[in-house]
Amino acid sequence: MRHLLSAGDLTRDEAVLVLDTAAELARISGRSVKKFPTLRGRTVVNLFYEDSTRTRTSFELAAKRMSADVINFSAKGSSVSKGESLKDTALTLQAMGADGVVIRHGSAGSAHRLAGWVDGAVLNAGDGTHEHPTQALLDVYTMRERMGRVDGLRVAIVGDILHSRVARSNVLLLHTLGAEVTLVAPPTLMPVSVPTWPCAVSYDLDEVLPKSDVVMMLRVQAERMKDAFFPTAREYSRRYGLDRDRFARLQDGAIVMHPGPMVRGMEISAEVADSARSTVNEQVTNGVSVRMAVLYLLLGGSGSAIGNQGD
């Protein structure tokens, strides 16, 4: 595999290799000198069409810790804002000799399109409402760290499933790794074909919570209310928010995750977000290790590609 476009592209072995590599890199990162020469001389371009300080910074830090040259190419203040097409931007990066392109884009499939136009590795850092595979990898990494395993874990993913690239990638990767996923949302925020997905579906958070080892809360944008996905933010929060009372009904040892950015008071209360069971900050830390692993495996040269199979 030359690119990381979808979490569904990873076999079980490939996914485990990424997680193990990330763990190894995290272990070495604990030293006082955090930098490796592994990707010296390689160029990684962060091509961000959407504002995302969190993800861009994470990829930038990951690439720099591997000694790669990093170029941040944001849509604002560049030729993109003058109407340049994605293809022309891709050909420009190609001509500059980018070894890897990390792309964040508002349109589903843009990472796939980019992969058809450049020779370097393409890493999907979120494409519209399609996927965000490194987020799923860092989430699974965090679960493994906290719970000691992924296989057989009962994971509830709660929130705006319909518009969530995080949910799509997590469902695919968690299924590959043997976890039991339950999606929880009001029916309006669930894709119509969700019964065909490899997971369970529920409209009742209170019924699912006591049976979950991991509860992953997704951001819900209050403006969805304007499109009648739910009547009011307050009603959403009442039915699907993880507040103090619901939090108290979690099993012992269960953890609460959130990909960020959080809307405190909407899908998650401040007490829950800041509790010891919350992994929000660990997820951010782990994100750097996982992205280092992916960059290493995709760009690190012969014998170290994530997969051995060809396209």
Binding site: G109, H130, R165, V192
Partner: peptide, 18 residues
């Protein structure tokens, strides 16, 4: 809307045309 609403649109994350 971008494509037929169904299994494929849901997987691809493209807005469905029911």
């Amino acid at each position: 809307a971008q494509m037929n609403e169904g299994v494929v649109s849901d997987r691809l994350g493209l807005t469905g045309w029911p």
